[in-house]
Measured scan of single mutants.
Amino acid sequence: TFEVERIVRKKIVHGNTSYLVKWKNYSSKDNTWETEDDIRTKYGDLVDDFEK
């Protein structure tokens, strides 16, 4: 199971928000862009903290 360590960046393309996710126990080269809906479902607190 993958676990988010932190959110690195945010991008908005054509009105759709995605977050660059750093995965726990993986290197930064393994970071992936994930949709806001996918990340918010399980890691809403991390998204809220990133947006502060």
Score class of each variant (00 low, 15 high):
residue 1 T to Y: 12
residue 1 T to F: 12
residue 1 T to H: 13
residue 1 T to W: 10
residue 1 T to K: 14
residue 1 T to D: 13
residue 1 T to R: 13
residue 1 T to G: 13
residue 1 T to E: 12
residue 1 T to A: 13
residue 1 T to V: 14
residue 2 F to C: 14
residue 2 F to P: 15
residue 2 F to S: 11
residue 2 F to A: 14
residue 2 F to T: 11
residue 2 F to I: 12
residue 2 F to Q: 14
residue 2 F to H: 14
residue 2 F to M: 15
residue 3 E to T: 07
residue 3 E to F: 05
residue 3 E to G: 06
residue 3 E to N: 05
residue 3 E to D: 08
residue 3 E to S: 05
residue 3 E to P: 04
residue 4 V to N: 00
residue 4 V to M: 08
residue 4 V to L: 10
residue 4 V to A: 14
residue 4 V to E: 02
residue 4 V to S: 01
residue 4 V to Q: 03
residue 4 V to H: 00
residue 4 V to G: 03
residue 5 E to Q: 05
residue 5 E to W: 03
residue 5 E to G: 03
residue 5 E to F: 04
residue 5 E to V: 04
residue 5 E to R: 02
residue 6 R to F: 14
residue 6 R to H: 13
residue 6 R to Y: 15
residue 6 R to L: 13
residue 6 R to G: 07
residue 6 R to A: 13
residue 6 R to D: 07
residue 6 R to T: 09
residue 7 I to R: 00
residue 7 I to Y: 00
residue 7 I to A: 00
residue 7 I to H: 00
residue 7 I to G: 00
residue 7 I to K: 01
residue 7 I to C: 08
residue 7 I to P: 01
residue 7 I to N: 00
residue 7 I to D: 01
residue 7 I to W: 03
residue 7 I to M: 01
residue 8 V to H: 02
residue 8 V to G: 00
residue 8 V to S: 01
residue 8 V to R: 01
residue 8 V to E: 07
residue 8 V to D: 02
residue 8 V to K: 02
residue 8 V to M: 08
residue 8 V to Q: 04
residue 8 V to N: 01
residue 9 R to A: 15
residue 9 R to G: 15
residue 9 R to V: 06
residue 9 R to W: 09
residue 9 R to P: 01
residue 10 K to I: 05
residue 10 K to Y: 05
residue 10 K to L: 05
residue 10 K to F: 06
residue 10 K to W: 04
residue 11 K to Y: 06
residue 11 K to M: 09
residue 11 K to A: 09
residue 11 K to L: 07
residue 12 I to W: 05
residue 12 I to A: 06
residue 12 I to N: 06
residue 12 I to R: 06
residue 12 I to D: 05
residue 12 I to L: 07
residue 12 I to T: 12
residue 13 V to Q: 08
residue 13 V to P: 00
residue 13 V to N: 08
residue 13 V to L: 10
residue 13 V to T: 11
residue 13 V to S: 10
residue 14 H to M: 12
residue 14 H to P: 02
residue 14 H to L: 09
residue 14 H to V: 05
residue 14 H to G: 13
residue 14 H to R: 11
residue 15 G to Q: 03
residue 15 G to N: 06
residue 15 G to F: 04
residue 15 G to D: 04
residue 15 G to H: 08
residue 15 G to A: 04
residue 15 G to M: 03
residue 15 G to E: 04
residue 15 G to L: 03
residue 15 G to S: 04
residue 16 N to G: 07
residue 16 N to R: 13
residue 16 N to V: 15
residue 16 N to M: 15
residue 16 N to L: 14
residue 16 N to D: 08
residue 17 T to W: 06
residue 17 T to H: 04
residue 17 T to E: 02
residue 17 T to R: 04
residue 17 T to D: 00
residue 17 T to K: 07
residue 17 T to L: 09
residue 17 T to C: 05
residue 18 S to K: 11
residue 18 S to V: 15
residue 18 S to F: 15
residue 18 S to A: 08
residue 18 S to H: 15
residue 19 Y to M: 04
residue 19 Y to P: 02
residue 19 Y to C: 01
residue 19 Y to F: 06
residue 19 Y to I: 05
residue 20 L to F: 09
residue 20 L to Q: 05
residue 20 L to Y: 06
residue 21 V to R: 02
residue 21 V to G: 00
residue 21 V to C: 04
residue 21 V to W: 01
residue 21 V to T: 01
residue 21 V to N: 00
residue 21 V to A: 00
residue 22 K to W: 03
residue 22 K to N: 02
residue 22 K to P: 00
residue 22 K to H: 06
residue 22 K to E: 06
residue 22 K to C: 03
residue 23 W to T: 01
residue 23 W to G: 00
residue 23 W to Y: 09
residue 23 W to S: 00
residue 23 W to C: 02
residue 23 W to P: 00
residue 23 W to Q: 00
residue 23 W to I: 01
residue 23 W to M: 01
residue 23 W to V: 00
residue 24 K to L: 08
residue 24 K to P: 03
residue 24 K to D: 03
residue 25 N to E: 09
residue 25 N to P: 07
residue 25 N to D: 11
residue 25 N to W: 09
residue 26 Y to N: 11
residue 26 Y to C: 15
residue 26 Y to H: 15
residue 26 Y to M: 15
residue 27 S to Y: 07
residue 27 S to C: 09
residue 27 S to H: 10
residue 27 S to I: 08
residue 27 S to T: 12
residue 27 S to E: 12
residue 28 S to N: 13
residue 28 S to Y: 13
residue 28 S to G: 09
residue 28 S to V: 09
residue 29 K to Y: 10
residue 29 K to R: 10
residue 29 K to Q: 12
residue 29 K to I: 09
residue 29 K to S: 11
residue 29 K to V: 10
residue 30 D to K: 13
residue 30 D to L: 13
residue 30 D to E: 13
residue 30 D to S: 14
residue 30 D to P: 07
residue 30 D to V: 09
residue 30 D to N: 14
residue 31 N to W: 11
residue 31 N to I: 08
residue 31 N to D: 07
residue 31 N to E: 06
residue 31 N to S: 09
residue 31 N to K: 06
residue 31 N to L: 13
residue 31 N to V: 09
residue 31 N to C: 15
residue 31 N to T: 09
residue 32 T to M: 02
residue 32 T to Y: 02
residue 32 T to E: 00
residue 33 W to P: 00
residue 33 W to H: 01
residue 33 W to E: 00
residue 33 W to I: 00
residue 33 W to M: 01
residue 34 E to Y: 11
residue 34 E to S: 04
residue 34 E to N: 03
residue 34 E to Q: 09
residue 34 E to D: 01
residue 34 E to V: 15
residue 34 E to I: 15
residue 34 E to C: 14
residue 34 E to L: 15
residue 34 E to G: 02
residue 35 T to G: 06
residue 35 T to K: 12
residue 35 T to F: 09
residue 35 T to L: 11
residue 35 T to Y: 08
residue 35 T to N: 11
residue 35 T to I: 08
residue 36 E to A: 11
residue 36 E to P: 01
residue 36 E to L: 08
residue 36 E to F: 06
residue 36 E to K: 04
residue 36 E to I: 07
residue 37 D to G: 12
residue 37 D to K: 11
residue 37 D to Q: 12
residue 37 D to S: 12
residue 37 D to T: 10
residue 38 D to A: 14
residue 38 D to K: 12
residue 38 D to Q: 10
residue 38 D to G: 05
residue 38 D to I: 10
residue 38 D to R: 11
residue 38 D to N: 12
residue 38 D to E: 14
residue 39 I to E: 00
residue 39 I to Q: 00
residue 39 I to P: 02
residue 39 I to R: 00
residue 39 I to K: 01
residue 39 I to N: 03
residue 39 I to T: 02
residue 40 R to N: 06
residue 40 R to F: 04
residue 40 R to Y: 05
residue 40 R to D: 01
residue 40 R to C: 06
residue 40 R to E: 03
residue 40 R to I: 09
residue 41 T to A: 13
residue 41 T to E: 13
residue 41 T to I: 13
residue 41 T to K: 14
residue 41 T to S: 13
residue 41 T to G: 12
residue 42 K to P: 03
residue 42 K to A: 13
residue 43 Y to H: 07
residue 43 Y to F: 12
residue 43 Y to I: 04
residue 43 Y to N: 07
residue 43 Y to E: 03
residue 43 Y to P: 01
residue 43 Y to Q: 03
residue 44 G to E: 08
residue 44 G to A: 14
residue 44 G to D: 05
residue 44 G to N: 12
residue 44 G to R: 10
residue 44 G to F: 11
residue 44 G to I: 10
residue 44 G to H: 10
residue 44 G to Q: 13
residue 45 D to A: 11
residue 45 D to N: 13
residue 45 D to R: 09
residue 45 D to Y: 12
residue 46 L to R: 03
residue 46 L to S: 11
residue 47 V to S: 02
residue 47 V to F: 06
residue 47 V to T: 03
residue 47 V to D: 02
residue 48 D to P: 02
residue 48 D to I: 09
residue 48 D to Q: 08
residue 48 D to A: 12
residue 48 D to G: 05
residue 48 D to H: 08
residue 48 D to F: 09
residue 49 D to Q: 13
residue 49 D to H: 11
residue 49 D to S: 10
residue 49 D to I: 12
residue 49 D to Y: 12
residue 49 D to E: 15
residue 49 D to F: 09
residue 49 D to M: 14
residue 50 F to L: 01
residue 50 F to A: 02
residue 50 F to E: 02
residue 50 F to G: 01
residue 50 F to R: 04
residue 50 F to M: 03
residue 51 E to F: 05
residue 51 E to L: 06
residue 51 E to Q: 04
residue 51 E to G: 03
residue 52 K to P: 03
residue 52 K to C: 07
residue 52 K to S: 10
